[in-house]
Amino acid sequence: MDISNLRQEYTLKGLSREELEGDPFKQFELWFQQACAANLPDPNAMSLATVSPTYSPSQRMVLLKYFDHQGLVFFTNYESTKALQIEANPQVSLLFFWKALERQLQISGTAAKISTAESLKYFATRPRGSQIGAWCSQQSSVISSRKMLELKFDEVKRKFHNQEIPIPSAWGGYRVVPARFEFWQGRANRLHDRFLYSRSDAKSSWDIQRLAP
């Protein structure tokens, strides 16, 4: 199978320094709003990259659930592979890819657990089926069959019949506190527009630099 000729020219628009917000969180919010307005499927889907204690990287898609100037929050099982890797090394990377807008956004920073109270507040908004599902899966562990998972779901469903479902102790959120944002806009001839926001610990303002494509 020859895939060497699979390519697409990016000609939708450009990105200039003058149109960028000085605050990367505001620039992110603008791009995120535009991704939502374009009715893209799962505009909050992002690739989360973590590294194991033996320096083996891994990635998976997670869903951004909310964000503010404190960081970006997603939820998971605290006994999953990603959670164990974050425990060993909190340095992570996030990547959004909005293909229809010819845009990528990479965010690097540190991840830390949010409070139980904050996790509970979000857990209460989840559909009941998703709440039950959080009790059923020892995420990333080996299971014998899907049937075992479905039986566990039915068991938990019966256990909490006509009851409010409590949050599992091994489930909750992480907040990624960014240190770097890179906004990428596709351009023709692979001469893409890339802008990096970064700052040192001693500075409150963000430096903005154009990167070669």
Rank of each mutant, 00 (worst) to 15 (best):
M1F: 07
S4T: 13
Q8Y: 08
Q8R: 14
E9K: 12
T11S: 15
T11F: 04
L12K: 15
K13N: 12
L15G: 09
F25C: 07
K26R: 13
A37R: 04
N39E: 14
N39P: 01
N39T: 06
P41Q: 00
A45W: 08
P53M: 03
S56K: 10
R60I: 10
L64W: 06
L64Q: 07
K65N: 11
F67A: 07
H69V: 04
G71W: 03
L72I: 15
F75K: 08
Q85Y: 06
N89V: 08
S93V: 03
L94E: 06
F96M: 00
L101R: 08
L105W: 08
I107A: 12
S108R: 15
K113M: 04
I114N: 00
S119G: 01
A124Q: 14
P127L: 02
Q131V: 06
Q131M: 06
I132K: 05
A134N: 09
A134P: 07
S141C: 06
K152L: 02
K157R: 13
R158C: 07
K159F: 14
K159H: 14
F160K: 03
F160Y: 15
N162D: 15
P166K: 09
P168Y: 09
G172W: 11
G172Q: 05
V176H: 01
F183V: 02
F183T: 09
R187N: 14
N189V: 05
L191C: 04
R194Q: 00
S198W: 00
K203H: 08
R210Y: 02
L211I: 09
P213C: 15
